[in-house]
Nucleic acid binder design. Sequence first.
DNA 1: AAATTTTGTTCCTATTATCGGAACAAAGTT
DNA 2: AACTTTGTTCCGATAATAGGAACAAAATTT
Lengths: 259, 259
Amino acid sequence: MTKSASLEKGLLVLNLLDGTEQPLGIREIARRLSMAPAVTQRMVSTLSEYNYVTQDPDSRKYKLGYRALSLGSNMLSDDALVSSAMPELRRLADLRNLNCYLGVVQRNSLVYVLAVQSSGPVAIRSAPGTVSHFHSTAMGKALLAATDEETARALLGSEPLAVLTSRTMTEIDAVLDDLGTVRRTGFATSIEENLPGIHGVGAVVRDASGKAVAGLSVAYSPQISPQQTIEAAARLVTEAADNVSRRLGCPLDRLINAV
Amino acid sequence: MTKSASLEKGLLVLNLLDGTEQPLGIREIARRLSMAPAVTQRMVSTLSEYNYVTQDPDSRKYKLGYRALSLGSNMLSDDALVSSAMPELRRLADLRNLNCYLGVVQRNSLVYVLAVQSSGPVAIRSAPGTVSHFHSTAMGKALLAATDEETARALLGSEPLAVLTSRTMTEIDAVLDDLGTVRRTGFATSIEENLPGIHGVGAVVRDASGKAVAGLSVAYSPQISPQQTIEAAARLVTEAADNVSRRLGCPLDRLINAV
DNA sequence: AAATTTTGTTCCTATTATCGGAACAAAGTT
DNA sequence: AACTTTGTTCCGATAATAGGAACAAAATTT
């Protein structure tokens, strides 16, 4: 695969600016990326022309522009999946005080597409576009369970599983074993396996062809919400996932709580 | 301002892919951008390597990748303004069934940063990053009114004002005249000036230095919500804006409803 | 089922955009 | 007021890019 060096440099500038809070000057960007200031200047000027970056009028430093925000937002608004899931997530977040997520598999990665924070005390931040792990999250395990073992192994990857908490499953076979339970019950759990002190419950959303197209999950802190139980959350999640699936035209017998 | 031709081509590919719903093939992208297929291939490969675009495994066509989604989302989560405003918008959207927006001025453009749709029947879509007009929206006029006439003229631009509805103000001087009322009352209105059948009310948010840093607005359809009045909406909007300003450390005497 | 068009992708070299040191003016700092 | 550091421009040596041609794999048509 041949690649364009100049375009790559521009993307590196975007990545850098996306990762830093404060605006950066041309020479500082150049330093961090080991590029010549003149080159950096050219990249930044081009990015600026397309509003991917903007220059602060006072400090003359650069930060991400609004195009960085708007890029990809059409993916959300034009999407049947997103518009079907949004009301369900909002309902769960508002009425039940849960942090709700919708995610899809893209290029063997688990990507969050929607994140609706509960208005309650703990907002578990996870911005759209963020990549997460299959083996440690309830959403990830729910999606794994909807595939065969071969695909699941491919999604888990060849590298050692990342250890995120003391309860993260570290063996691929242990994860695969867990999927049997997920398939039987219709939902997956993550008991402090992804974030310390956070419980998650996830289930899959299916489209008209019955294929699993997304994972829907909720997360909460049992320390702050002691009245919340896995079982109650599982009921809410599977119902919400089924509601979305129904809206996508999924056959009724493929729903988690099939009739 | 010199610019990088290759980077520009890559950005054009992103713009194209962002604007089309269906995935596009290499040769189709090349055709629409008048580029050679081999060149397009190189750009797309590079963008793909950084996950800005992904290739559909079946059709081998390309669409935006998850990096297009995640780029810029840190702007939202790390931002004091956004995290201060989000709860207020959510409250207005949920309890009062209003579509709520937060926007800032960037590079002489009015950019939506947050959009919280009401769970009610009419969701007035406006994705984050979208650019809107100063002269036709309540948020825009509120922000204009917070500046002096010279700055306001600069923000309105030199081109003729876009006509969006039959009630859109088309004369710059008429808009500037209107700002006096906005300054006196503390809020701006848009009565079907931006979207037919949609009323909007907006006010400004100020930071610790008292500077207007953002506009907060709500929109609703009076046909569907006949009980809603401009006056009631104005009270909610100015209160919400003041709450956000307070959270940003704004001096109390600079608030709209000053003590 | 065979023929044909269209697809994504790679190769290659003339061409052209890019690189980066040097130079400049404007801010900021000492 | 002297000095440093900043964003920005210039320009010749250089290295990356452009794009036609070629290929194999799909998709389409015959």
